[in-house]
Design a protein around this nucleic acid. Structure first.
Length: 484
RNA sequence: GAUCCCAUCGUCUAGCCAGGUCCAGGACACCGGGUUUUCAUCCCGGCAACACGGGUUCAAAUCCCGUUGGGAUCACCA
């Protein structure tokens, strides 16, 4: 038996979608587990929608996720080129082959005429099937039509028999001959349609395991028939259940990020995202949920792929990320944090590794990298550039007898004389608590609100050390001044 | 509308193929409690599902049929 060769064949329309990421991941796992090959091909036969920058985006996202391919665009191989826009001759030759063998023929309808036929079929509550002319148009007819300015396409002449697809997830699915029709394989502009290019490329590139979204299952009969016409071997098929939003609708941008890149920008770790999407439609079967890529490769199995659609639960993804962060070592976190910062506007200095490492350490328990600027960003802005959260001010400083402000006034004097290290500040503040027999909250909170404008910051000692004495005093002054 | 596919806690799912060990297990969310100088983390406890109706069987979440619900496809987009 040949070794497994899978592929991910995205159409470049933008950043990689999480659905596409899962398809890529499963293909990757399938290949890696079998010691096979994972191939990346770009399907860009739609010249009108072509977006060159999207190719780079997809490549960047796949690499960020850790899904490196063994063959394909950028890494090359023996079966290139790996973008369909560079393979026109191959498709033209194959279409010609079908034409010569009488397995395909020319058609000349305009989109309007086709629409009218479809509308009519619909009105009669029957499925539209392209009416095959008899006799079939010749090449001369095609030339004539072209001269008359009519669109010329090539349609595949279906053999007219039922087609059964043996899918490794959904089982045997049969499409009756009556449900098929002579579909287009070459467009007016001479480029092949998806079905033809996809089948030809998979066969020529040696792909023998096709794993893709379920939306293709009811179209696979076209691929089976095309392969048969060319004499290509059948690959194994595994269609994947779809990923929906929480309302059960097709995952759309409407209710949050759906692009891999958006999660990267939002401060997620790729291993958390990969782990999470691996569990959308699959699981190892032994109760484990947190899996490394190596563990996924080891335990992956098509037999355990589900048939029911899955919903994309962002809350659970967040929980996965929280755990991934807790499990990551400092080197990993530093690299991830720098990547996050490079993608976002931030007041945090990005060139000081020891500072970044320190921020990582004092923020243990953070859920995404975005939590760090949320909590510490204010420490790096100008002393008059942060806002006061009135609710926090009221609760901590202005409430009741104004003891918060009184404490702040008292603390300011003490702090002004204090040596500025974590230890000395801790000794000072704990000393005050003991001396006055009050809880830590009574002391730390007034300072926190004064110097950050909110009740959210790292522990008070680190907050003050990062700020420095001068800025701490300046901020307390600002706070007292606005008291009015 | 036609064709095909799917159906276990709110969500991801285990169990189903080889019926009994399941008054259905885990995780996320949620609720309650605890730890903590804030936020977050963390710890403990709780709530919560076999879509419905028939059938087969001594026995059904598991097998069969139907109903209902959801999804996909029906493009010169992939």
């Amino acid at each position: 038996m040949d070794t497994i060769k899978t592929r991910f064949a995205p159409s470049p329309t933008g950043w990689l979608h999480v659905g596409g990421a899962r398809t890529a991941l499963f293909n990757y796992l399938l290949a890696k587990q079998a010691g096979g090959t994972f191939l990346l091909r770009i399907e860009d036969t739609d010249r009108a929608r072509h977006d060159e920058s999207a190719v780079e985006k997809i490549i960047e996202d796949l690499r960020w996720l850790g899904l490196e391919w063994d063959e394909g665009i950028e890494v090359d191989g023996d079966n290139g080129p790996y973008r369909q826009s560079e393979r026109l001759e191959i498709y033209t030759e194959h279409i010609g082959r079908l034409l010569n063998a009488g397995q395909a023929y020319y058609a000349f309808e305009t989109p309007e005429e086709l629409d009218a036929m479809r509308t009519e079929a619909r009105a009669e509550k029957r499925n539209f099937r392209y009416p095959r002319p008899d006799p079939l148009p010749t090449a001369a007819d095609a030339d004539k039509a072209r001269d008359e300015g009519r669109p010329v396409v090539v349609r595949f002449k279906i053999p007219g028999r039922d087609v059964t697809i043996r899918d490794e997830v959904f089982g045997e699915v049969t499409v009756a001959a009556a449900e098929q029709d002579d579909f287009i394989i070459a467009k007016t502009d001479g480029w092949p349609t998806y079905h033809l290019a996809n089948v030809v490329d998979d066969a020529l590139m040696g792909v023998n395991f096709v794993c893709r979204g379920q939306e293709f299952l009811s179209q696979t009969w076209r691929h089976v028939l095309l392969r048969e016409a060319f004499g290509f071997a059948e690959p194994r098929y595994a269609h994947l259940p779809l990923i929906m939003d929480m309302a059960g609708r097709k995952l759309s941008k409407r209710d949050g990020a759906v692009e891999v890149h958006a999660f990267r920008t939002a401060g997620y770790l790729p291993e958390a995202l990969v782990n999470f999407i691996s569990l959308l439609g699959w699981n190892p079967g032994d109760g484990r949920e947190r899996l490394t890529m190596a563990e996924m490769i080891e335990s992956f199995s098509v037999n355990r792929i589900n048939k029911a659609n899955a919903k994309f639960d962002r809350e659970k993804l967040l929980a996965f990320n929280t755990d991934a962060v807790a499990a990551a070592d400092e080197g990993r976190l530093l690299a991830g944090f720098k990547d996050y910062l490079s993608l976002n506007e931030t007041p945090i200095p990005t060139d000081d590794d020891s500072l970044l490492l320190h921020l990582l350490r004092i923020n243990k328990g953070f859920r995404t990298f975005a939590d760090i600027p949320t909590k510490c960003g204010v420490l790096f802005v100008a002393d008059d550039a942060y806002d006061y959260d009135e609710k926090a001010v009221k609760k901590v400083l202005a409430r009741g007898d104004g003891s918060g402000y009184a404490m702040l006034e008292y603390l300011k004097a003490k702090l002004a004389d204090c040596e500025w290290t974590e230890e000395t500040l801790q000794a000072l503040i704990e000393g005050i608590c003991a001396e006055k027999s009050i809880g830590m909250g009574k002391v730390a909170q007034p300072i926190r609100v004064a110097v950050t404008g909110s009740t959210i910051s790292p522990d008070i000692y680190n907050t003050l050390v990062i700020l420095g004495k001068g800025k701490t005093i300046a901020r307390i002054d600002r706070c007292m001044a606005r008291k009015g």
